[in-house]
Structure formats: C-alpha cells, structure tokens
Design a binder for these strands. Structure first.
Lengths: 201, 201
DNA sequence: CCACAAAGTAGACGGTGACAACAAAGTCGT
DNA sequence: ACGACTTTGTTGTCACCGTCTACTTTGTGG
C-alpha cells in the first residue's frame, strides 16, 4: 500500500499565486503594514524563505499586489460600464459608483495602489494604473460627443473626477465620515460634476 | 574647574516634543512605515526604551503625530482664510490652495491622518479632524449667505470639496500625475465646484 | 540518463517593538 | 533639610521579522 498521507509535496507548484491570494485576504483583514512574509509562508505551509523565490523582497510582493489591484479595478469599471445605459449621466454614475465601492471594499489595497512608494523604476505599476485612467478618458470623450461636457481640458477633468472619488473613499476608509454616507456623497459629487462641466447654455 | 563637557543630563526634559519633532522630519524624508522608535531614540541621544515613557507603543506616537497634523492643518487653513479677499470665490480659492500645498508638502503625514488605522476608541484624532471640516463648513455658510451657493446639503458639499482636494493630493503624492499639475488641477476643480454649486439662474 | 535550472529548506544575522527590573532625578510634605 | 514617592530614563531580554547564504529536492531538456 502506497503512502496515502497528505504530506505536502516538496514543490508547492502554485506558491506565487497562493502568496498573492493569502496576502490579499490578510490585507483586507489587517492592513498592509501588518502583512508579514513569514506569516504568509506559515499559513500556506512552506518555509519562511520560500517566498523569496517569487518575490525578491517584501516590497516586490506589495508591488505585485498593487499591480493586480489596478487590473482588477479596471475590469470592475469596464463591466460596470458595459452594463449601464447609453446616456452619459448613467454611464458616469455607473462607473463612479463601481469605483467607490471597489475603493471602500479594498481600502488597504487602494492605499497601496496610490501609495507611490513603489520600487524605483517600477514601470509595471504605472502601466497598470494607466488602464483605469484610460477608461475614464474614453468615457469623457463619449460625454463630449454627446454634448454633455464642455469642450477642452478633458484630461484634467478626468483626473479631477477620479480624484474626487478617491478622496471620498479616503475619508470614508479613514472613518472621518460614516460609511453609510458613501452613496449619498457619490451621488451629489456626480451631480455637482455634471452641473459644473456641462456646456454653457 | 567644574565639568564643562556637554554630557547629556539624565533627564532629557523635552523628550516627548523632541520625539514628535524628529518623527515628523523623518516622516517627510522616509515615510511613515520606515519610522523606527529606536532610530528616533538614537538620533535624539536617549536609550532605545525611553520613548516608551511618553508613547506606550509605536501606534501611539503615530496617533499623536496625526492629531498634531490636523491642528497644524487647521491653523494653516485659517491663516490662509484670514489673508484672503472678502468675496466667496477668493476665499474658497485661498483655502483650497492652502490645503493642497499642505497636503503635498506633508504627504506621509496626510496619509497618516487619513489612515483610519488609529487606536480603537481614538476619539482625540477624530476630534482634531473635525476642526478643518468645521472651517470648511463655516466657509460654505458664508458662501450661501453671499448667494454664491444653492441652499441645502451644505455638509455633504463641504465633505465633497475636501474630498476632491484630498484626492488631488493623493494622486500627486502617489506620482500618478506630475507635481507640476497641482495648481492647475486645483484651479479647475474650484471652477467646476463654483459652477456646479451655484444657484440655478 | 544525466547535467542543470527551478523551487523549497535550514540556519544565521542584524534590526525592531515590547516588556520587566533597575537607577537617577525631581517633588513635595513634614 | 530630608526622606518617601513619582517621573523619567537605562539596561537587558524576548520574540518576530526581512534578508542573505548554503544546501536539498524536484523537474526538464539535450
């Protein structure tokens, strides 16, 4: 009778993915600064030095986490956008609401993504971060085409739009204002934006 | 001849203040997570356990730093406001510009202030955080009295205003957009806000 | 089939936050 | 003026963490 015990194989096989998964869960529970490589290794069941094979140091793992966050955010925004109505206000509302929820449900991850403390020459993250901005820009171009936005300075308006959302998420994640206000705040922010950015009559 | 060497006295006398000062400077240089109590103690010239007398643990020092940051921010905003013209747009512009500069020149501190990872039951920070919000609210009440703002929902508008600034600062501190764009972004954000919040004709 | 690369292990080092036991200095009542 | 008490700083210790080096196991391609 062969060995039927569930001894772990010497090679985990999916260690990198397992690390990212565990890290992301721990981040949600404890925040980024409490995240310990040795802890993750223990939880997964490998030795304390195993993560080093996949991430040269702790920051590398955090960077990978952040990069992953941006791509996840991008897909969230795009799916929200495809499920929305055709008119510009609906599309803006859908996108911004999706962003706000992602940002408040992944607070620590968001903080990491915008931390800017990334590896010097960390082009990959910046690259991944461009996707959501690109999306926002496409949306605004649409809006301009529909005549809902005054022409010109699109990039700055897009940045401000994203910044507002980011700010709302930040003060909610920081317990400065109650979480229940989130949807209210997003709604009024959008109203303000639409009123402020539409063409002069 | 008495002892004229500059031996440190056994009691530092201002250790708490010295710690906060050193911590704040180090934060500006290295960020909050790189901040080490032992490092601070070394720099000041006390033993590694001395800080414990003034801050029971590391987080307590960070909390004190954050609280201090809010009061400093409040005074910055108030002085900017008193030096501004009487009309509402000028006052908004002065306040928001001051906020934006404070936020980008004290990036790590701001992150700490809005981190929300404070001591459970940390009422003091929330209390200190209320001051800037209060100021913003007063300003908006003024604006309403001057007829520059539509009536109603002032608190939400104030929160959004602050959030927008916070967001702009965040994406600049995170190197998502170039620092040179700061003033431009603030200006257009204010324009948008004033256009979006003014009474319907 | 075997050399070699990839992936995981074991052990060590310096640094850190927290804690306990102790020492010096200030303070205050008598 | 002086002794008890409190405050503030010191020394030593512990567990934990990230990182590094050297070693072992496993998979793979010539």
């Amino acid at each position: 009778m062969p060995d039927t015990t569930d001894e772990r194989p010497y090679h985990h096989g999916r260690l990198r993915a397992a690390l990212l998964d565990a890290a992301e869960r721990r981040m949600r529970e404890q925040g980024a600064d409490q995240l310990s490589l040795r802890d993750l290794a223990r939880e997964i069941g490998v030795s304390h030095a195993a993560p080093r094979r996949h991430f040269p140091d702790r920051q590398a793992l955090l960077d990978a986490l952040a990069e992953d966050g941006f791509t996840r955010l991008d897909t969230v925004l795009r799916t929200a956008l495809t499920g929305a109505d055709k008119d510009f206000p609906s599309r803006v509302r859908a996108t911004m609401t999706a962003y706000a929820h992602f940002a408040t449900e992944n607070a620590a991850l968001l903080e990491l993504m915008y931390a800017g403390k990334h590896r010097p020459g960390g082009t990959r993250i910046v690259k991944a971060a461009e996707a959501p901005f690109e999306l926002m820009n496409e949306l605004l171009v649409e809006g301009q085409a529909q005549g809902a936005l005054q022409p010109g300075a699109l990039d700055r308006i897009g940045i401000i739009l994203l910044a507002t959302l980011q700010g709302i998420a930040a003060i909610i994640n920081g317990n400065i204002v109650e979480r229940e206000l989130l949807d209210d705040l997003v709604d009024t922010a959008i109203d303000q934006f639409l009123r402020g950015a539409r063409p002069l009559p």
